[in-house]
């Protein structure tokens, strides 16, 4: 029985939260890796794209709430999400038209695009602050739990409870569906293959009649959609705070690099590697140790690192992967 309790506790405190967080990171890292593969630079504005997209989704959510719209147990943000993606994609395409396109035309070094992206980061950061401020905002208005601790205990008779929040479940479903759709798109459709071709060899893609500007636009739209989804799901799961979206840039970059920059499969794998390590390293294992080793009451919490150091986990994994497997888990730089 103790082993069952330990398993439930691991599931409840490690596996479920890490899976949800990993999905959010994976969606973010997919966007970063697509832009890296096709536009050939790391987009420092990605975190703030997530932030501004989420801010727009929140504003739309408020608007829909004021209109009295309801989705029953589901959060209204899900209804606002497609509109938010469309608006944010429009904004991002505008930055491409006004900022990045010039540098593609003069064939500037990609490092210039990195610097331009920090300019866009400042812009988006300021706009987010203007739109919605810097305070913490909760906008999850749906039902709280799909499975609550009491229900679970009543069903199973275990002392340890398990809760699955609706937001976590939605995260897993939405992330799973979007990954499936993205991989299908990249591997099966003409436009998706054109994106991979462009990433492999820009000139040859052009010589095959692929319109580079169309590929670039498509990349921005997909990356933005993934970013806004990641941001909204993260906000539903935890809460919205503009600064957190800047900080999440590090685990997202780490996930993309750990997986192998430019490799979508790698981005997803990297997201989960980072999320599971972060949660596992910062979780106090005392309770589970108590179940597994009867009669042992360890003095400390058995927590490897306090939660404040979760960024250190991304960093250490990144360093280890780079030291032992420099191209990432999935040999990056090409799709």
């Amino acid at each position: 029985m103790d082993i069952a309790n330990a398993l439930v506790a691991i599931l409840n405190f490690v596996v479920i939260p890490a899976a949800a967080y990993g999905s959010q990171l994976a969606l973010g890292a997919l966007g970063v890796t697509l832009i890296y593969g096709i536009l050939r630079f790391s987009n420092f504005a990605h975190g703030d794209t997530m932030a501004i997209g989420t801010a727009i989704v929140i504003l739309l959510t408020w608007g829909l709430q004021a209109l009295g719209v309801s989705l029953g147990p589901l959060p209204i943000a899900l209804l606002a999400l497609p509109i938010g993606i469309a608006i944010t994609a429009g904004l991002v395409l505008l930055t491409d038209r006004l900022v990045y396109r010039h540098y593609r035309r003069v064939r500037a070094d990609p490092i210039v695009l990195v610097m331009a992206s920090t300019g866009v980061m400042f812009l988006m950061n300021g706009l987010t602050r203007l739109l919605i401020g810097v305070d913490e905002i909760r906008f999850d208005d749906g039902a709280r739990f799909l499975i609550s601790v009491q229900q679970f205990k009543a069903w199973t008779g275990l002392t340890e409870g398990l809760a699955l929040r609706l937001s976590q479940f939605i995260t897993l479903v939405v992330a799973g569906l979007s990954c499936w759709a993205l991989f299908r798109f990249l591997n099966r459709t003409r436009s998706g293959k054109a994106m991979r071709a462009y990433s492999d060899n820009e000139d040859l893609a052009l010589l095959s009649g692929i319109d580079p500007e169309r590929v670039v636009r498509l990349t921005w739209i997909i990356a933005t959609a993934l970013a806004v989804m990641a941001g909204t799901l993260y906000g539903l799961d935890k809460s919205f705070k503009a600064f957190n979206y800047f900080q999440i840039l590090l685990p997202i970059f780490a996930a993309a690099i750990v997986g192998g920059l430019g490799s979508p499969t790698g981005a997803v794998a990297g997201g989960f590697v980072i999320a599971f390590s972060e949660v596992a390293v910062t979780y106090p294992w005392k309770k589970i140790a108590g179940y597994l080793v009867p009669g042992w009451q360890p003095e400390g919490l058995l927590q490897l690192l306090s939660t404040e150091y979760k960024f250190a986990v991304s960093f250490v994994i990144l360093i280890v992967v780079l030291l032992f497997r420099p191209t990432g888990l999935f040999r990056g730089k090409s799709f």
């Binding site: 890296y36 630079f41 990609p110 490092i111 695009l113 990433s199 820009e202 052009l206 430019g262």
Partner: peptide, 8 residues
């Protein structure tokens, strides 16, 4: 931060 492989 930059990807120079396959640049046009």
């Amino acid at each position: 931060i930059v990807n120079t492989a396959g640049r046009g």
